[in-house]
């Protein structure tokens, strides 16, 4: 069923006029060139930071010779490692939960008519349009009110008192990520052919089976795009996070922001390079496994 969707529209299918053929060739080349240039644009600064992670100078913008010492000192730098760990934990948890909740929200908004739908539709954009610093300040006030109420209610004080920290950071990241995931998944749902679902149901599949077998595979690209967005937003968020975190709850962006007064430490370049390498390895690794399994299942 899903295979039918992506029948490749090879050029041979259609009688082609000569001008169209030229247009097609030209178009394909332009597309490829655009992609190459865009990737170059995206990776130019990345290349710079990778190179600088091996530069034997703390401040200078010149090449002073190759060194691995930043990687060595990174392993000693507890605060950067700690912040990296915090960032990854928050990003993965908030992405996982926000992707589920955001997709659910998107389904509700696109598949149901209910009272207050339009109002909620607008409210869903609030996390996206609210300037970060405003979100940060207002959440700080909000958490301070609720947490002090809770502390009073349960008579907590000193070390046992509830305060802002990684938990509030994660809760906040989930909140804005839900909005982003929902918006992206809805894009997919809007272009969605309901006829496929109806066909499945006509064939006797119940709602759940229809969802799992038909809807989910079809909106998977949207969910993936949403999840990637969410992960990126969470990993990179500085302003809001600064306001809603607490003792020991610094994330990587906060750590980095503190370092730029003197210089972006080459250790930060080193940690970025390691994260890049792991991400790329992850992608390539899963591709390789996929290919191998693909070969096996073909046999």
């Amino acid at each position: 069923m899903t295979a039918a969707r992506r029948t490749p529209s090879t050029d041979a299918d259609v009688p082609i006029q000569r001008s169209d053929a030229r247009f097609l060739r030209w178009g394909k080349r332009t597309l490829g060139l655009n992609a190459v240039l865009a990737l170059f644009f995206l990776y130019a600064p990345i290349l710079v930071l990778v190179i600088f992670s091996f530069n034997d100078s703390k401040l200078a913008a010149r090449w002073e010779g190759f060194t691995l010492r930043w990687y060595g000192s990174l392993l000693q730098n507890e605060s950067i490692l700690h912040a990296t760990r915090n960032s990854l934990v928050v990003a993965l948890i908030s992405t996982a939960l926000a992707t589920v909740f955001g997709t659910m929200t998107a389904l509700a908004m696109e598949r149901f008519r209910f009272r207050g739908r339009r109002v909620y539709d607008g409210l869903l954009y609030l996390p996206i349009i609210n300037p970060e610093i405003v979100t940060g300040v207002s959440l700080l006030a909000f958490f301070s009110l609720t947490l002090s109420a809770l502390n009073q209610a349960f008579n907590l004080s000193g070390d046992s008192a509830l305060r802002t920290g990684l938990v509030t950071v994660t809760l906040t990241h989930i909140a804005f990520n839900i909005a982003f995931v929902a918006v992206v998944v809805r894009t997919t749902l809007k272009n969605f052919r309901r006829s496929l679902e109806e066909a499945a149901q006509d064939l006797g599949a119940n709602e759940w089976v229809t969802f799992r077998r038909v809807t989910l595979p079809l909106i998977a690209p949207g969910i993936l795009a949403g999840a990637l967005l969410a992960f990126t937003l969470s990993l990179d968020n500085f302003v809001i996070t600064f306001f809603v975190t607490g003792p020991g709850g610094a994330t990587l962006p906060i750590e980095v922001f503190g370092l730029i007064r003197r210089a972006i430490s080459p250790e930060i370049n080193a940690v970025s390079t390691i994260m890049l390498t792991i991400s790329v390895a992850l992608i390539v690794g899963s591709q390789v496994i996929m290919r191998r399994r693909g070969v096996m299942s073909d046999e």
């Binding site: 899903t2 990296t84 990854l88 934990v89 993965l92 595979p217 079809l218 992850l282 899963s286 996929m290």
Partner: peptide, 25 residues
Amino acid sequence: MNNSKFNRFLILAALLALGLIVAAC
């Protein structure tokens, strides 16, 4: 078929990422 393959790829990537985080924690 493309899509199920795609999904499996996603799940795999997610699992690997999860493993990474567990290691980190």
